[in-house]
Design a protein around this nucleic acid. Sequence first.
DNA 1: GCAATTTCTATTGATATCAATGTATATAGT
DNA 2: ACTATATACATTGATATCAATAGAAATTGC
Lengths: 148, 148
Amino acid sequence: MSNAIEIPYGTTLLVRDTCLCLHAQRAARALARLFDDALRPAGLTNGQFSLMMSLNRPEPPPMGPVAKLLAMDQTTLTAALKPLQRRGWVDVIANPKDRRGRLLRLTPEGRTVLSAALPIWESTHAALEKSLPEGNAERLRQDLQALA
Amino acid sequence: MSNAIEIPYGTTLLVRDTCLCLHAQRAARALARLFDDALRPAGLTNGQFSLMMSLNRPEPPPMGPVAKLLAMDQTTLTAALKPLQRRGWVDVIANPKDRRGRLLRLTPEGRTVLSAALPIWESTHAALEKSLPEGNAERLRQDLQALA
DNA sequence: GCAATTTCTATTGATATCAATGTATATAGT
DNA sequence: ACTATATACATTGATATCAATAGAAATTGC
């Protein structure tokens, strides 16, 4: 008898075909590339666009809620802010209501960049939705929402 | 009159709620955390699990098709292989049929690690599917597949 | 008011992701 | 065979992602 560990090839195919995590990572990579390419002329990645858009509020939000909204680790958010701060598109200011925390505020330059990127997002997203069967976009949004 | 650029808050909310790319990134992050946590005792991340599982084939595959299967950049794959090679779980060998290319092969140790991780994946994925409404998992898989 | 706990964020180290570029080999056109 | 093009992969540099840890300030229990 053999001690060799064998995972049946059929099992491999099953995991490949059914793993929701793998499917989500694949789709996330593909969509990231799509929007990164489209937004490149505006100088933003898809993540930077989403982050900056989430900061366009009447009142600058603290970091915690923004990280939660984007379903990302707080340390990831800290790192993601660095290049945006460096370019002068986002200010990280003290929170007068809570001296532990910071507030994230778009600068006027940041708003200019973001508004230039907005029509690119609109056309790219419209083309994407059009490429999906009727109704699938909304259904997909709801299904994804249930995971995050 | 003012030159200030203003993106209406309503536009921000619309982008947040409808952007498929953002929804996909959020879901991908959430599922990555779920499986990373579950697989940690096995010493694998979700991405390493998917990658190693994709290498469990009758014949060791070249890098290109593996990168395509995972919908990742080829340079990402090269980088992802580094820690697996270092730990002796994957061998990168010359391709006798094409001297430009390499073949990726699980080592016996790699198969041991992978087979230990497999039941963790099974239980984690079963629990995940159970948490979704009946039929949504399969539908979601198909919708995600259409994107990647 | 004080101590214990919790919350908010930063830092460090490891891995993941991709663009840009370069090198080697294979393939196609002639 | 020769040249031009295409393919396969590595390297570098920038950003993204998270765990582990630590510090500071707020909150809670008393």
